[in-house]
Design a protein around this nucleic acid. Structure first.
Length: 844
RNA sequence: GCCGAAGUGGCGGAAUGGCAGACGCGGCGGACUUAAAAUCCGCUGUCCGCAAGGGCGUUCGAGUUCGAAUCUCGACUUCGGCACCA
């Protein structure tokens, strides 16, 4: 009997190796080193919610494998981590317990640091950034003041959801169709507030350009649609005189279909339109106001829902169409948004679904102005005609009747320009960034309101504007800064008179919109970034993070980078060269993991039971990384078993333990040399596949390939080739391939084998990624499936280099093929690049 | 509703125009054991058949193709985002 080997005990191995890697400084990037190619690997930093759940592991551990894979390619890898530490959850916890959110946040961070380390993730902790620390958020303030100076920030009135007890509410804090406050249940109102905006629409066109970026198509499409560029025209209608109104005011509408201008039969203003009051006839006032109240209670999603029945109210006023002087009635309806275009539309029911619905509902005329060239201009429409094909012509359009629709667009716009009644315009769905939050737990916006001087920026020398330490939440969500007189009352930096600080804080998306620059010089105290480091290390080479950030965070990050470029701070306008969005891990119930749902999987328990390596590998093995899925621990045992099998292969190649009846023998038909060739072929084919899978982030199939290799090696365990040169090479490759994914057990086995060979300790994570030996992977024979009419009926084994004619001859000579053909001759023979032969015969 | 994605055995999934179900879980059987656990080996889509073999089968319905899980069109279901959750 053999000597007993140690059992695989992750709880002993993992902390030991984590400490060893720390001692070696393995994960510290040398930012000044220019001798190796740099690789800036960024994963979305964590929100310190208090507990790391399995979703954090799902994001982090494959990213760590990427880092380690790149280090094995002699790259200088920088993989920092930090905490996105401002935000509502801390504030909510603070309100509940009436404590400073800082206390709650810092406690969470301390816990999460320990958990993150337990993953064995190779973060460079020396670069850690915590956004709620003054040495980070002072630079938010600094950047804001620079944006202000550059005209990129401005103030505008806009509406927020407002609870009389809790102040401004986030969308998720408004509940139910009756729209009540989640905390106190009060009815939610809209309130107009002066707020800060960042002029990100300036970058709309530039943001549409993804040239040179390796971003997934779906994300690019979503961002493109979010930006929503529409080419069209602004058309100036005029208000008609009426009993209550002098008329004659210009009233601009935006349309993407100026070619349908003659079909406009009414006009619709958004409930937010500034001219509403002036245009409404006295007898309609009550009805219109009631409608506005109703509209204010609706969400934008609800307002835009195409299947909702259209609502609206006539104002009792008309507008005059510049092309034909037609008087059309003006309505207010909530399917038009104040924030888009001019907040007013000309309604062409014949050629727009929404206008068609509205016209049908309100009995308004529908005039057809575009139709196929062979159409009937008088036939009634049963739905809006919105086709865009080459052979359409205008009808009922005065001098433009008969013109091809494609040309009419330009011709009518030209006519409008000549008559000073309109111009070509591009409109975007993208809006400027509403930047103000009526919250405590964020970066104070560094401006002072002075009665005499107006808005005065806080002088750079006075930054940071610190959040007070003693906060009184009074049990409500109203920003305690608004009650903190010591914070609010200041002297005006400009005139020295009494003045008040702004109590609003910044959207926390600001924090996450430049943090990767700060990682490069986290402690720099005379500027937000280190230009030399930024020039050398950015853009980020690879960014990884959840797909739920597809639009917002990833767009804000691009916008802020461009703003930083425009104030001369950085050179490039794009932050992330390559992007990979993982799917989300949902709870076992298929819902998003959250404490309130009680479906959070705590990884600490799993680590205690299986070790970090097993969990890392299991998360990679679960399925494609971009797909996520419901959490289920089913199958984790299989991955753990695999690591145990690797352990056994490495330390006990000769073992006869276990009841394998074939143990000790070579597989049938193989001699020693054939067995060694088989082992080498398996190992090098696996290496080739695994290298490709790591490169393409296909971790699930990467793991499957490694499992297959282990299964192959088990067939030879205990035989005369076990522990031979081919075997030893295969084990060595197996460990190197595992090193990025399961770093602890790979290093442990690597070093146990080194010790057996009398070599000193040397971490596997400083080894180079091995090269494939092409001579080992080439096969002499190949199996080719034979189909008859697309169904596999036989298979044939042929020499690898066989030519088509010879293959066809062998195929047709097969008994089985002749039997299936039953005397028929194939009409066609398809050779699918040597992978398959398909014999096509006519069915009798 | 709009934008994006996904739907394949009992389960997670593989195959992205060429052998459907790799790999793993679960299940069944065997070896080892006084026994159990652990470990090792084998079988495992479904129906018909003693077998050889055959039929059916990738959410549903049409289509393109010698050949479709994969491409096209139309539905259904689920997930992500929709601008104050991060």
């Amino acid at each position: 009997m053999r000597a007993r080997i140690d059992r695989y005990q992750p709880s002993e191995i993992e902390p030991r190796w984590q400490a060893r890697w720390d001692e070696l400084g393995l994960h510290r990037a040398d930012l000044a080193d220019t001798t190796r190619p740099k690789f800036y690997l960024l994963t979305m930093y964590a929100y310190p919610s208090g507990d790391l759940h399995i979703g954090h592991w799902y994001i982090t551990t494959p990213t760590d494998a990427i880092a380690r894979f790149h280090r094995m390619h002699a790259e200088n890898v920088f993989m920092p981590i930090g905490f996105d530490a401002f935000g509502l959850p801390a504030e909510n916890a603070a309100i509940k317990n009436r404590v400073n959110p800082r206390t709650w946040t810092m406690k969470s961070i301390d816990k999460m640091r320990v958990q993150l380390r337990s993953m064995g993730a190779s973060f460079d902790w020396s670069a850690e950034v915590i956004t709620c620390e003054p040495d980070y958020y002072r630079w938010n303030q600094w950047l804001f003041l620079e944006f202000l100076k550059a005209g990129l920030a401005y103030r505008k009135k806009s509406a927020v959801d407002w609870c009389p007890n809790d102040g401004t509410l986030a969308r998720e804090q408004v509940e139910g169709t009756d729209r009540h406050c989640w905390r106190c249940g009060a009815k939610v109102e809209k309130r107009e507030l002066d707020q800060w905006y960042l002029r990100v629409t300036r970058y709309a066109d530039e943001l549409l350009d993804f040239n040179g970026l390796g971003w997934p198509d779906p994300i690019r499409i979503m961002q493109t649609n979010w930006i929503g560029r529409s080419e069209g025209a602004e058309v100036t209608f005029t208000t008609a005189p009426s009993a209550h109104h002098a008329g004659g005011e210009p009233l601009g509408v935006f349309t993407t279909r100026p070619d349908t201008l003659f079909g406009a039969t009414f006009m619709v203003l958004a409930p937010e339109h500034p001219l509403l009051g002036a245009l409404t006839a006295p007898e309609r006032k009550a009805e219109v106001e009631a409608y506005l109240t109703q509209a204010a209670a609706r969400t934008e999603i609800d307002r835009l829902a195409a299947d909702r029945e259209k609502t609206g109210v006539a104002l009792g006023a008309d507008a005059i169409n510049p092309v034909n002087q037609a008087r059309i009635p003006i309505f207010v309806a909530d399917y038009v948004l104040g924030s888009y275009g001019t907040g007013a539309i000309m309604a062409v029911p014949a050629h727009d679904e929404r206008d068609f619905d509205f016209a049908t509902r309100f009995g308004l005329p529908i005039i057809k102005v575009v139709m196929p060239s062979d159409g009937d201009p008088d036939a009634a429409l049963t739905s809006a005609f919105v086709e865009h094909s080459a052979d359409e012509v205008l009808v009922n359009s005065g001098p433009f009747s008969g013109r091809p629709a494609a040309d009419a667009f330009g011709e009518i716009v030209a006519w409008l320009e000549q008559h000073d009644a309109g111009k070509p315009t591009v409109t975007y769905r993208l809006r400027d960034w509403g930047f103000s939050r009526q919250r405590f737990w964020g970066t104070p916006i560094p401006v002072i309101h002075c009665e005499r001087c107006g808005i005065v920026p806080v002088p750079a020398a006075d930054l940071p504007v610190l959040l007070p330490e003693n906060v009184d939440y009074a049990g409500s969500g109203v920003n305690p800064l608004t009650r903190d007189l010591a914070f609010l009352n200041v002297t005006c930096p400009s005139c020295g008179g009494p003045a008040q600080r702004e109590s609003d804080t910044m959207d926390t998306f600001m924090d996450s919109s430049w943090y990767w620059f700060r990682y490069l010089s986290p402690h720099k105290d005379d500027g937000p970034i280190d230009p030399a480091m930024v020039a050398r290390w950015t853009p980020v080479d690879q960014y990884t993070g959840g797909a739920e950030h597809a639009v917002m965070h990833l767009l804000y990050a691009r916008e802020v980078t461009k703003m930083m470029r425009d104030i001369g701070l950085v050179e490039q306008g794009e932050p992330f060269l390559r992007l990979f969005n993982q799917g989300q891990i949902l709870g076992a119930d298929g819902e998003r993991m959250s404490k309130s749902r009680g479906n959070v999987q705590d990884p600490d328990d799993l680590v205690a039971r299986y070790g970090a390596d097993t969990i890392r590998l299991f998360l990679m093995f679960m399925g494609p990384w971009d797909q996520g899925g419901s959490w289920s621990p089913t199958g984790i045992g299989g991955v753990h078993r695999f690591l145990n099998r690797v352990w056994t292969l490495a330390l006990d190649p000769q073992g006869l333990e276990g009841g394998d009846p074939d143990s000790g023998k070579l597989p049938a038909g193989e001699d020693r040399a054939a067995a060694e060739r088989s082992i080498r072929m398996a190992a090098h084919r696996t290496l080739r596949a695994v290298t490709e899978e790591y490169t393409g982030f296909r971790f699930n199939t990467m793991v499957a390939h490694l499992m297959e290799l282990a299964n192959t090696l088990f067939r030879y365990r205990g035989s005369e080739v076990a522990n031979g040169p081919a075997w030893d090479e295969a084990i060595r490759l197996l460990l190197l391939m595992l090193a990025p994914a399961t770093p602890h057990v790979a290093d442990e086995l690597w070093n146990r084998l080194r010790a057996e060979a009398g070599l000193p300790e040397s971490t596997i994570h400083r080894e180079s990624w091995p090269a494939v030996d092409d001579t080992a992977t080439a096969a002499e024979l190949r199996e080719v499936p034979i189909q008859v009419n697309g169904k596999v009926r036989d298979r044939i084994t042929v020499p690898a280099g066989i030519d088509q004619a010879e293959l066809e001859r062998l195929v047709l000579a097969r008994d089985r093929v002749r039997e299936v053909l039953g005397g028929r001759t194939p009409d066609r023979v398809i050779h699918a690049g040597g992978r398959l032969v398909n014999l096509v015969v006519r069915e009798s």
